[in-house]
């Protein structure tokens, strides 16, 4: 199998990598680039644990080929905080106890970040439907929804 050379942008940095044609973005992130914050819960786009943001839209990185990311902009959980400053969503997830085991958390944070970019003041129903592709088996979602509401309020406040 001949490797494909890909130039892309990940968390604002230029990144180049080689991958096989059938290799997913998730495999590239985890196995080639050491970015293991995205998790593989299913490999078929049903759990959202591998969520990343590509050109502003949240995607399951298990359903994107590494080769497809040529020239794209990728955001992963590793780029969410700025230095030691947590993103408001990250801070609120801890504050609201919105995680137990935490395996789904990076995916939820990526999806929630995309939500708040598109809808700064989402209703509870909008939050719940937007996040329906992110499975959590520990929390029953209650505290996750509250954390997203809390972060949205804080981010709206921060803007004004």
């Amino acid at each position: 199998m001949t490797s494909i050379a890909v130039s892309t942008t990940i968390n604002g940095d230029d990144v180049e990598f080689l991958c096989n044609a059938d290799e997913t973005l998730l495999d590239v992130l985890r196995n080639r680039l050491g970015l293991m914050g995205a998790k593989e819960g299913c490999g078929t786009g049903d759990c959202g644990a591998c969520s990343t943001i590509m050109d502003g839209r949240v995607v399951c990185s298990c359903l994107v080929l590494g080769a497809e990311t040529q020239g794209r902009e990728i955001e992963t959980i590793e780029g969410m905080s700025e230095g030691q400053d947590l993103h408001p969503l990250q801070a609120k997830f801890i504050e609201h106890a919105a995680l137990q085991c935490g395996i789904c958390t990076p995916g939820f944070l990526m999806a929630a970040k995309a939500l708040l970019a598109a809808h700064p003041d989402p209703s509870e129903e909008e939050i719940r439907f937007w996040l329906a592709g992110n499975l959590c088996r520990c929390t029953g979602y209650d505290k996750i929804v509250r954390a997203v509401q809390g972060a949205a309020a804080e981010m709206r406040g921060a803007k004004t």
Binding site: M36, G37, F93, I94, I103
Partner: peptide, 21 residues
């Protein structure tokens, strides 16, 4: 009381290491 959990930062930054990590 309800203090912040000690493994919170690792888990919201993707640094926590699970079985496959």
């Amino acid at each position: 009381t309800r203090p912040l959990r000690p493994d919170g930062v690792d888990k919201v930054t993707g640094r926590a290491r699970y079985g496959a990590d």
